[in-house]
Design a protein around this nucleic acid. Structure first.
Lengths: 138, 138
DNA sequence: TTAAGTGCAAAATCTTTGCAAATGT
DNA sequence: ACATTTGCAAAGATTTTGCACTTAA
C-alpha cells in the first residue's frame, strides 16, 4: 500500500490522516526535489482546495515534516525533511540549489559549512542557497 | 551637502537623479542595515508612491546599487551594494543575518565560504542567511 | 459525538501594468 | 523639446480569515 508511509508519518506527528493530507504527503515522499506552492497547486488541480493546501503546508512545516525554502523570487518551496527533524527544530542543513532558468529548487547532498557569526548574534539555523543553472537546464 | 553621494552614484550609473531616487538612495547610504520593502514604504509615508518605490528598488538592483535579500517570510529586503558591484554582477557575498524576532536583516562582515557543488549544477552566486536572535533583541 | 479539517466566499495584501501628467537633461 | 520617470487607477496575483459543512477518531 502506497499510503502506508504517509499514514505512518502522520500518526507519528499526531495528525489526523485525511485524504488531502495523505495526497500531499505522498507527493513529497515520491519526489526528492522541492516543489513550489504554485506548482503543487497546479499539479493537484482541484483535488484539493487552494486554501486547504496553504493550511496543510503550514501544518507540515510547523510539525517538522516539510521544510520551506524561499527562492529567488520570494516564492515558497517545500521539501520533505529528513527524519531528524522535529516540530521545534529543523535539521535541513544541506545546500539548496535554485535554478535561475527553470526556478526549480534542489536539495543537494552538500552540507552547510560551519561559519563564525559576529558577536552578539545568535544563529539557530542557516540557509545556504546557490543560484545558477541546474543539471536539467544545462 | 548630504545629497552629494547619492547624486554621484546616480551619475555613475547613468540614472536621472530625481527627487524620489535621491530620497531612497540617501536612506540606504545613511543606514548600514538592510531594510524591507514594507518598512521602507512605511518610513517614506506618502513622500513616494508605492509603485514608484517598487520601480526604484528594481532599477537599483538591476544597476547594482542595491542587493536584494529575501528573508524567512519571503519578504524582499534591500541593502546597499559594495562598490564592487556592477550592473551584471553582484558581489555581495557576505553572510546575512535575519532576526526571527524583529525580522531585521543585517549584512555581516563574514564572507560566504566556498562550497563544492554537485556535478552538473553551475552556481553563479550564493546566498547564506543565518536565522536567529540579533544583537538588538538579545 | 465532537474536535479538527475542509471548501467556499470574501477580505486583505502584495505586485504589476497602462497611461496621462510632470520632470530632468 | 524629448525621453524618462512619476502618480494614480485599475488589474492580477497571492495569502488570510470567517463560517457552515464534513470527516476521522
Amino acid at each position: 500500500m502506497a499510503d502506508a508511509d504517509a499514514i505512518e508519518i502522520l500518526k507519528r506527528k499526531k495528525l489526523k490522516h485525511t485524504k488531502q493530507r495523505i495526497r500531499v504527503l505522498e507527493d513529497f515522499l515520491a519526489n526528492a526535489t522541492a516543489i513550489s506552492q504554485p506548482m503543487l497547486e497546479k499539479k493537484l488541480g482541484k483535488e484539493i482546495d487552494r486554501v486547504t493546501l496553504y493550511r496543510i503546508l503550514n501544518t507540515y512545516v510547523n510539525k517538522g515534516i516539510l521544510h520551506r525554502i524561499v527562492d529567488l523570487n520570494g516564492t515558497a518551496n517545500y521539501a520533505i525533511c529528513s527524519s531528524a527533524c522535529s516540530a521545534d527544530q529543523h535539521h535541513d542543513e544541506h545546500v539548496h540549489f535554485n535554478c535561475t532558468n527553470c526556478y526549480k529548487v534542489y536539495c543537494l547532498a552538500t552540507k552547510v559549512p560551519a561559519i563564525s557569526i559576529t558577536d552578539g548574534f545568535k544563529a539557530d539555523s542557516i540557509s545556504l542557497i546557490a543560484y545558477g543553472i541546474c543539471k536539467e537546464c544545462n
